[in-house]
Design a protein around this nucleic acid. Structure first.
Length: 855
RNA sequence: GGGCGUAUGGCUCAGUUGGUUAGAGCGCAUCCAUGACACGGAUGAGGUCGGGGGUUCGAUUCCCUCUACGCCCACCA
């Protein structure tokens, strides 16, 4: 036994983290069978910056559950990953090095970027080749990932670092492509040319799940369409007059009496004079504007619906770069008014068209400014446009009621923590309106493993893609050649082309259970040991993306939900209850907090918050956690200082296992141990239900009671080896300490390990979770401690030391209480420095206290 | 427009099938520097459980309604 003179929390993190690593105590047991495994589908953090308090918060919550499960005997599968492919990384690379990817640039060997961190504001990103750009991505993520790992290790998260993966590494590319090929083979993935939401800055298609609405100013413009029979004008209102050239019809509600006579007739568009039909559709809203709207290809997603369902012609005018196409669409004269908008941005074009309409007299009144929601890519800066392009999709129920029902069923297989998060899943699935668009016109991602044959004219034949075999994965269709072709046939008539696109990052991260477990890999496949996983921890704002996408993939490939439990963490709020944001400038970094309060203190704050509950950032809570950890060291030192004359308990069954009969333990000590048994039961039940916060609350409450009441109560007896009950007190103290250290290990892994190391071999984190010893929680101590409390109050009111002697104490109590007090009388007189006690039968419990003179 | 959640002493939160004086910590006040701990200990003040209505012998807890805040979803001309 080696107890320091002055226990301290300082410096214990680095020491124990290194020790755990050396001992490999968090290694997954690869021989474990599924029933013994507890598998966690860890969220791979996005590597595009730094870890923030939200990560600390939620990952620590998962870690506590992992630690409990490990101690409870499960073989914990707890991987870590980096989500390092995708747009966030590309954007960070652009901002960090001052470059942008331009595939038309030649590769430069040994390329040096103009900056490494913080290019000046006026720097114009220089174009670099695709390969140079990808190299820079790899460089930067390697740097970022080192920083991430260092912080995670400092946090004491009990992940198995040998399971580390990255979503861009070779294994992930192979697994992602393998899963996709299987989707293609079974028809759950397909490509299609269709109108697609398009970000004009990133120049890529985006998926429904990545949209967000933002309130933007706009204006209603009232525009006159001319009836082709010459009987007058039809007025419509629009916020997008620049799309007039893209107009293919006017639409009103079929029941709208104002337009009954117009259905089936035609009007001519202003400026361009194109003849378009007036059609009826129930999505038209009579109360909006004039009740009749123009349908353009495409102004919004409703236009797409109308265009498709009413089988209208295509008259696209917005290009992929967000500018008006130089060539006018079918039916519009390129030389007319259109020439003035060709090549302009959408915004510029609007100004021009409004001027033109004003001049032609076809604009009625002044534009009426409004605020309205506009769809944005969640990471984008300009409103989305809709352009037609060929994309890959994975079926997600958005176009198939049966599939949707099945996916709702998968959601119901999962136990949600907290339960109400399930609504968000159902809500999302039931609101889907299209399949999942997985292709992106970007660079740093998993390539779509597909080539297309070129016909004799050199045009791609998209219906018969050329696919690699699984054995050849991963492939890069831009560099690799499909079977049966030679490299020289690329881009040649009769030859082939590679698909230029990459998967959206969610298309790969939706496979984290497969990636982490090395599904179907030649080396180290653990899939069968861990799938379906036990737990998916994640934030609630990505239910519609990550959680749902993972469920879709598991449904298609494995026919089941990917996990048994989904644990949804809340958000960190600023003290003023707003969502914590980096832009506020007052955000403290996790490392600062760890250094100020210690890891266990930061963990304590994280673990005080329940799943799904948004929580205020609170340094006060961390201070409490610091005190808690410190107290654990001190009480451990104190209890252990008594020596082990009563026999040293070594595990949860210490007292009996030590050869000491229950009857050798005094009634007072048995009562404390009974109370502890109840706490163990409650904490265990709470942990089993993923409610670590409740387990902490119960354990902590008992811990402080133990320190302030029980220890104070019995320490006089424990000191004095001449006392008959000394051995009992010592064994009880040690036994309780043993259980407490283990109960607290998931919360305070460093302090518990430190205190544990003074008297036990082996890590507390691989010791068994305590189980009840079998004593009754009889409340025997309630009455004696109540008396002690009254004595303390009397001393406080008399403004004397707690050490002051009580000459006589007359207790009025019920017979049962008197019996309890009598059984604890030795400890009571010790703890209260009481000379003489007498009893009167009665109720309620009361005391008459006479302090010794001169005190 | 639809859905979900939250409203408990100055602050952060518990409150487990409705049941005797609604709990804890922080903060605050007063006191004690007792031989584990001053990153300590003792004691205390402080709440008509968001408003209104209902069910019940009895509601913070169940039902209805209103209000405030937050989030998710929606076809946004």
């Amino acid at each position: 036994m080696n107890i320091p003179e002055r226990p301290t929390l300082d410096g214990i993190e680095a020491h124990w983290a290194a020790q755990w690593d050396d001992d490999g105590i968090y290694r997954f047991d690869r021989s474990a069978v599924r029933d013994d495994v507890f598998a966690i589908d860890t969220p791979p953090p996005t590597v595009s910056g730094s870890l923030h308090m939200g990560h600390i918060f939620s990952y620590t919550q998962t870690d506590a559950i992992a630690r409990y499960q490990r101690m409870a005997g499960r073989k914990v599968f707890y991987p870590m990953g980096w989500d390092d492919n995708g747009l966030p990384t590309e954007r960070r690379v652009q901002n960090y090095f001052g470059v942008r990817c331009d595939p038309s640039q030649p590769f430069i060997d040994g390329f040096e970027p103009p900056f490494r961190g913080d290019p000046p504001k006026d720097h114009h990103a220089i174009p670099v080749s695709r390969q140079n750009f990808l190299d820079l991505c790899e460089q930067l993520i390697a740097i970022d990932e080192q920083v991430f790992e260092a912080l995670m290790r400092r946090m004491g998260w009990s992940v198995d670092w040998s399971l580390l993966y990255s979503t861009i590494d070779e294994r992930s590319r192979r697994i992602s492509q393998r899963a996709f090929l299987r989707d293609v083979a079974r028809g759950t993935a397909y490509s299609q040319e269709a109108p697609t939401l398009w970000d004009v800055d990133f120049q890529t298609a985006v998926a429904q799940a990545e949209l967000e609405d933002r309130e933007r100013p706009a204006a209603y413009h009232t525009i006159a369409f001319h009836r082709t029979d010459g009987t007058g004008d039809v007025l419509i209102e629009t916020t997008r007059p620049e799309l007039l050239a893209a107009c293919v019809a006017l639409v009103a509600h079929p029941d709208d009496p104002r337009y009954q006579t117009l259905f089936g007739r035609t009007v001519r568009t202003p400026l361009y004079g194109v003849s378009v039909p007036i059609v009826a559709h129930e999505l038209a809203q009579p109360d909006k504007g004039t009740g009749i709207a123009m349908i353009c290809t495409f102004g919004d997603t409703t236009d797409v619906t109308w265009w498709r369902e009413l089988q209208l012609p295509m008259r696209a005018i917005v290009g992929r770069n967000g500018r008006i196409l130089t060539e006018a669409p079918n039916g519009v004269d390129s030389a007319g008014p259109y020439a003035a908008i060709a090549g302009q941005t959408v915004k510029q074009a609007q100004r021009v068209v409004v001027e033109q309409l004003g001049a032609s007299g076809e604009l009625t009144g002044d534009p009426k400014p409004i605020q309205h929601p506009v769809k944005f890519y969640e990471k984008g800066d300009r409103p989305l446009e809709i352009v037609t392009s060929r994309q890959w999709y994975i079926r997600n129920g958005g176009r198939d009621t049966n599939l949707r029902t099945e996916l709702v069923g998968r959601g119901a297989e999962i136990t949600w923590h907290p339960g109400h998060m399930h609504h968000r899943y159902d809500n999302w699935v039931e609101g889907l309106n299209g399949d999942w668009l997985v292709s992106r016109q970007r660079f740093f991602g998993v390539p779509i493993p597909v080539w297309y044959p070129l016909d004799t004219n050199g045009d791609p034949v998209y219906d018969t893609p050329l696919l690699p075999t699984e054995a050849d994965l991963p492939v890069d269709p831009s560099a690799d050649v499909p079977a049966g072709y030679t490299a020289g046939q690329r881009h040649q008539p009769g030859g082939f082309i590679g698909d230029q696109d990459v998967f959206d990052t969610w298309a790969t991260s939706s496979l984290t259970p497969q990636i982490a477990s090395r599904w179907l890999e030649a080396e180290g496949d653990m899939f069968g040991q861990v799938f379906p996983m036990d737990m998916r921890p994640q934030a609630h704002d990505i239910i519609r993306t990550w959680l749902f996408a993972t469920t879709v993939r598991a449904h298609h490939e494995h026919g089941q939900a990917p996990w048994h439990h989904a644990a949804l963490s809340g958000w960190i709020l600023d003290p003023d209850r707003k969502k914590m944001s980096k832009s506020k400038g007052n955000v403290v970094t996790p490392m600062d907090l760890i250094e100020t309060y210690g890891t266990d203190a930061v963990r304590y704050w994280s673990l005080s918050a329940r799943l799904g509950t948004d929580t205020a950032f609170s340094e006060d809570q961390m201070k409490v956690g610091r005190k808690f950890a410190n107290k654990l060291l001190n009480v451990s030192k104190f209890v252990l200082s008594f020596g082990d004359s009563g026999g040293q308990p070594t595990d949860g069954q210490a007292i009996v296992g030590d050869g000491l009969d229950h009857s050798a333990i005094s009634a007072v000590d048995r009562s404390m141990l009974g109370k502890l048994d109840s706490v163990i039961e409650e904490a265990t039940a709470a942990f089993a239900a993923f409610d670590y916060a409740r387990a902490l609350e119960r354990t902590e409450a008992f811990f402080w009671w133990f320190c302030d009441d029980y220890v104070e109560f019995v320490k006089g007896r424990a000191y004095d080896t001449e006392t008959a009950g000394a051995a009992s007190a010592r064994v009880a103290l040690r036994s309780a300490l043993d259980s407490l250290q283990r109960l607290l290990a998931p919360f305070l892994p460093f302090a518990t390990e430190e205190a544990r190391s003074w008297w036990q071999d082996g890590s507390v984190h691989v010791s068994p979770w305590p189980i009840p010893v079998g004593f009754a929680d009889d409340g025997l101590l309630d009455a004696p401690l109540q008396v002690l409390s009254l004595v303390r109050r009397a001393k406080t009111e008399a403004k004397v030391s707690q050490k002051a002697v009580v000459d006589t104490l007359v207790i009025t109590a019920s017979d049962a209480e008197i019996a309890a007090i009598t059984s604890a009388q030795t400890d009571l007189t010790n703890a209260g420095s009481i000379t003489q006690i007498s009893f009167t039968s009665g109720a309620p419990l009361a005391c008459e206290i006479v302090l010794a003179a001169g005190e």
